[in-house]
Each structure stands twice: as C-alpha cells, then as structure tokens.
C-alpha cells in the first residue's frame, strides 16, 4: 500500500500488548483531512494515535504515512531540563525545518531559556504543540487542548484549519471535523463495479473508501451501514461482503 502526501492510511490494523486483550481489531481508517477520534477511556484512542504516528507497530495490518509527521502525546513530561528555545531549535534541526510562530499564536508567556521543568502545564503543552507544528504533512495530537486556556484553545482550532490531522478530542473543539468513534466499532463493506467512489466518500458515516484491485472497501459507522449499503446498490454497485 503506497502512501501519498498528507494522508495516513491504516489498513486492517489490530493491536494487543503482549498476550493481553485486543486494544484494536481490524481497524481501517483513512486520514486525509481533519479527523477526530472519540470514545470512552480505554477504547484505544492513544494506541491508535501512536500507531498512526509511528511510535508503535501494529500487531497486524499495515500503516502508510507521509514523511513529516508531528506528534503530541497525551501528557508532555514535566521534568525536562532543557529550555524551550533549545528544545525547539534541536527539534527544528532534526526535522530540517525552520521556526514557526505557533508559540506566539498560542500565547506562550513563560521563559524560553529556563528549564522546561519550570514551565506551567499549559506553557509546556504549547511547547509540545510548537514542536509538532514543525511537521509539514500530518499532525497526530492526543488531547492537545489539555492544559490550554480558552484563548489558546481557540487559536489551536484555527491553527488546525486546513491541516491533515488525527486528533483525540473529548471536548468537541472540532465540530466540523470527520469523527471516528472507536467505541462504536465499524462495518467494512466490499463493493465491486463502483463508478462513483467520491459519492460514497461523501455519504454520512463513511470513514474511508479504498480501491483494492477491482473492488472498493468502504468502512462505515455501524449505525449508518444500512443507508450506505442502500445508496451503493442504488449507484449500481455489487456487494461482495459485509463484515
């Protein structure tokens, strides 16, 4: 499966830690715009984000991502001895990227030269976001609003506009983004004779549409699968399987 600029593809991804229970099962997802992950605690949001970012390998399935990915973990560590300016300069050199104005836009007010361990939680989170926004292709953000004040939260929403990003969001900051509810599971529909895949992609509840040889795989929210099947049949598609 080849990746292309600005798109993360997860194909039949499953994950378990050691011999523990499955955290994710057969998840297929295409992230080509702003996508929000929702779901209760323990439904695998952080695991999925780590797999999408390249921190974790899936137990099975395939992941394709562009070269430049920015990642913000759920909790940025609080005991970092390096200063914010040094850290961002180093991360910029590692990425071969120039500086950005994210810190200013988010309203960073701490010392740039003091150890980051002396920063407040909100300001440390702004540094974490600034390093992630050095990435040019895709952002993977795990609860990025954690610790941010209302003004910075609104600014982060503005910064995400037009970007390709996979974001976990409990608080509904990104109302217009595509939503994927991990707690709800999904239905995978295999279709053939698909003449208008774009029409399928636009249907409510459709999470991804992938061409696979002569067939097309459509991943749908469970509560919308009947409507999507009906629409696919109306468009003249043949249904190969529904799982």
């Amino acid at each position: 499966m080849g990746g292309y600029l600005g798109v993360v593809l997860l194909d039949q991804v499953s994950k378990r830690y050691g011999r523990g229970p499955w955290v994710l099962r057969d998840l297929t997802l295409e992230v080509s715009g702003l996508t929000v992950l929702t779901g209760a605690n323990g439904t695998g949001k952080s695991t999925l984000l780590k797999i999408a970012a390249g921190v974790l390998k899936p137990t099975s399935g395939r992941v394709s991502r562009p070269a430049s990915v920015g990642y913000v973990p759920e909790r940025f560590p609080s005991d970092v001895k390096m200063s914010a300016s040094s850290y961002l300069a180093h991360m910029g050199r590692v990425r071969r990227a120039g500086a950005n104005d994210v810190l200013e836009r988010l309203g960073f007010v701490g010392s740039m030269t003091a150890p980051m361990s002396e920063l407040s939680k909100g300001n440390a989170q702004k540094v974490a976001l600034a390093q992630a926004f050095l990435a040019t292709d895709v952002l993977v953000l795990d609860e990025p609003w954690s610790g941010l004040d209302p003004r910075a939260s609104d600014e982060l929403v503005a910064l995400l506009e037009g970007r390709t990003a996979l974001v976990s969001d409990h608080e509904g900051h990104l109302a217009s983004a595509t939503r994927v509810d991990l707690a709800g599971g999904h239905v995978t529909i295999e279709l053939s004779r698909v003449l208008e895949p774009d029409v399928l992609q636009a249907l409510e509840g459709v999470r991804s549409v992938q061409a696979r040889g002569s067939s097309v795989r459509v991943v749908v929210a469970p509560d919308r699968s009947d409507q999507v099947l009906a629409e696919a049949l109306r468009l003249g598609c043949s249904v190969r399987s529904v799982r």
Partner: peptide
C-alpha cells in the same frame, strides 16, 4: 523519558 522519546522517534522518522 518514555514520552519525550516517542516525540523524538516521530520527529526523527
């Protein structure tokens, strides 16, 4: 620490 290493891994590729 583990979390910052994850960020470095993603940044470095």
């Amino acid at each position: 620490d583990v979390v910052r290493r994850e960020i470095t891994v993603v940044s470095a590729g």
